[in-house]
């Protein structure tokens, strides 16, 4: 299942659009963080929006349904975010790679054959947990104390299920219904995708 030019362009353009959306939510999260800072709850300011940051991988994987394409989509979204000026810096690119891989894991485990709400929600929960473990080590979250960590994990998983698990599936299904995803596996009509 080789990636065609059409797959790649749809993937890169989706990644670019999500990159812009991600950057917008980085600023929203920053504002919430600033509001919570005086109370000392600053570091959970981003958690309600974390699900948005995983959408590119699950969306692109769900539409194109070829191995690895979700990982690259998330990586590119992160790269474009850095190029547009994300203040979390180049480390975001590594985040993107890891999050993309975590998003794709449930699809990989079902051999890229099961595409329903169950797998997209599994993808969301998987990426929320993996990304929190990474932040725990990378951003020294262990210094934050138990209450904040528990709160952070729970809010992040809920956010991921809503935005990544349910949101990106609804979005892809709606676009498919609008008829703009013909020729991709999601439309179920293109035999040529499986021949290669």
């Amino acid at each position: 299942m080789q990636w065609k030019l059409k797959d790649i362009l749809t993937m890169t353009i989706s990644a670019a659009v999500f990159g812009v959306i991600y950057l917008g939510f980085v600023y929203v999260g920053g504002a919430v963080t600033a509001a919570l800072t005086p109370a000392g709850y600053g570091p959970i300011g981003y958690e309600p929006f974390y699900g948005v940051f995983f959408m590119a991988a699950t969306f692109v994987a769900y539409v194109i349904r070829k191995p690895g394409i979700g990982i690259i989509a998330e990586l590119l979204a992160a790269l474009i975010e850095v190029l547009l000026g994300n203040y979390f810096g180049p480390g975001v690119i590594i985040n993107g790679l890891l999050q993309g891989a975590a998003c794709e894991l449930p699809f990989f485990l079902t051999h890229y054959k099961k595409w329903n709400l169950g797998t997209t929600v599994a993808s969301a929960v998987c990426v929320a947990v993996v990304s929190y473990v990474y932040d725990f080590v990378h951003d020294s979250y262990f210094l934050l104390g138990g209450k904040m960590i528990a709160l952070g994990v729970i809010i992040r998983i809920i956010s991921a299920v809503i935005f990544t698990g349910i949101g990106s599936k609804l979005l892809a299904d709606a676009l498919n219904k609008a008829g703009v995803l013909k020729g991709f596996a999601i439309s179920g009509k293109s035999k040529d995708l499986y021949e290669e």
Partner: peptide, 29 residues
């Protein structure tokens, strides 16, 4: 100007981490 646009939210984020760890971190308890 580009530099400042990125710097302002970065400053807020850095301050929030600083205060959260300083006030609520393991040691403070």
């Amino acid at each position: 100007r580009h530099l400042l646009v990125v710097m302002i939210p970065a400053t807020l984020a850095a301050l929030s981490l600083f205060f959260a760890i300083w006030l609520n971190g393991k040691g403070a308890g």
